[in-house]
Amino acid sequence: MNSISVTLVLLCATLPVALSLIEGLVYNGNFEHGPKSWQLSGSHILDPHALPNWVISGFVEYIKSGQKQGDMVLPVPRGNSALRLGNNASIRTTIQVTKGLFYSLTFGVSRTCAQDEKLNLSVIPNSEANDSAMLPMQTMYSTDGWDTFSWGFLAEASKVDIVFHHPQTDKYNPGCGPIIDLVALKAFPPHTRRQGIVKNGNFEEGPYVIPNTTWGVLIPSNIEDDHCPLVGWVVESLKAVRYIDSDHFAVPEGKRAVELVAGRESVIAQTLRSIPNTVYNLEFFVGDAKNLCEGSMLVEVFAGNSTFRVPYESKGKGGSKLVRLQFKAVSSRSKIRFLSSYYHMKSDFSGSLCGPVVDGVRIRVAPRA
């Protein structure tokens, strides 16, 4: 199911078990239901209520597939329509949720004018400052200039407003700003399966992946989002990691994995309970995503006070190897961290960032000799 109607969400809001299984586009999250002709001046939307299920303010444009700005084609990733947020523009939608449940929002975004475009995302009501984020878009990761981001939040009410806001202005081009499309929501069940000591070590519980898209989903740094959509993990870095699926990438185990796409600026970490002076076995897969990411890769692994460097030779055609390591816990809490030592770009000369894939992380107490 690629779309969730308002009626369906309302019915399931009284059934937390059923709601936890619902995932897909919010109503009109692909903006295919657009304004009437009299609500537009060119592509500029004049009526704040012209888009079903959304309220707009500021300079918002309704972009059609193939539309140009000068010689540049404005990208619409899927379907016929998307929105561009110009001068101090925002769009808002209200959705029914289950109070106390954790949610992940997935949305597509593309930069169109400025190198330093920003997008503010917030959920209302919220009692924490980290329930809003300013996402920088200096780095675009996909080959076609369109990225899909994710963002997590804890529902503090049974009805929340999700707001996208472009805070910048351009007096020469009021429409200059990011394009947004494919807004989707996913609810998570209250409990997460563990692989031994590690929570969600196979990365199966993560943000919603838009079907039939080949971009993966970027999970932002914890600087922007303390509620990480990758359940059990934290992105401890300046830049994002990419969440990939087996329908479009090579995944070592199961259906999901993580690609460390920005070298030492892509880090995933998890803090575990441990017994001091106990030796643990750590195993995981390292590989490539079958996305033309070639060359000598090196994954650095930190576990407790131990550091390991795991090489992997990638031909960019998919492949992986199982790695087994040992470390000794020095306290009741042990942190594991994974990062890529090197920066990589795809061999298609697109300039797109890529990197090694990590999957199937497991930790168990080592048998005594």
Rank of each mutant, 00 (worst) to 15 (best):
V241Q: 00
E259I: 05
V279M: 07
R256E: 10
F284C: 07
E300V: 05
G316A: 03
N291A: 15
L260Q: 05
G254M: 02
A250W: 10
R273S: 14
K239Q: 10
S237D: 01
F302A: 10
G254A: 09
A262S: 15
N291D: 15
R273P: 08
N291I: 09
A269Q: 12
S237K: 06
L282V: 01
E313M: 03
G304P: 01
F249N: 11
R256H: 15
L282I: 05
S314P: 03
E253P: 03
T271N: 04
P252G: 12
E236T: 12
A240C: 15
F284V: 08
V267Q: 01
E236H: 06
E313V: 07
Y312N: 05
D225F: 13
S274K: 13
V258M: 05
I275S: 08
E300Q: 11
T307D: 01
Y243P: 11
K315F: 10
V258G: 09
T278K: 14
N277G: 00
D245A: 09
L282F: 07
V258I: 13
N305E: 11
A240V: 14
I275D: 06
N305A: 14
K315C: 14
F249E: 06
V251I: 11
W233D: 03
V258S: 05
L292P: 05
H248W: 05
S296P: 03
L272N: 03
S266C: 12
W233Y: 02
Y312P: 05
V299D: 11
G254Q: 08
E253N: 13
R242Y: 05
V286K: 01
P311C: 12
R256I: 08
I244L: 15
S237C: 06
V258F: 00
G316Y: 01
F285N: 04
V251C: 03
P311Y: 12
L298P: 05
R264A: 13
K255P: 12
A257K: 01
K239M: 14
F249I: 06
T278M: 15
T271Q: 06
A289Q: 09
F308D: 00
G232E: 04
G232A: 02
S296C: 07
S237H: 04
E259R: 11
F249C: 12
F284E: 11
N277M: 04
K290M: 14
P276F: 10
G295F: 00
G263H: 07
R309K: 07
R273M: 04
K255T: 14
I244Y: 10
L292A: 15
F249P: 04
R264D: 03
G254F: 02
G316N: 01
F285D: 12
Y243V: 10
E313R: 11
R309P: 00
I275Q: 05
M297S: 09
E265H: 14
F284I: 03
P311N: 11
P252C: 07
F285E: 01
Y280A: 07
V231R: 15
V234D: 05
G287V: 06
G263T: 10
V279G: 07
H248S: 14
K239W: 10
G295H: 04
H248M: 11
K315W: 08
F284D: 08
Y280C: 03
A269E: 13
V241S: 06
C293L: 09
H227Q: 13
D226R: 15
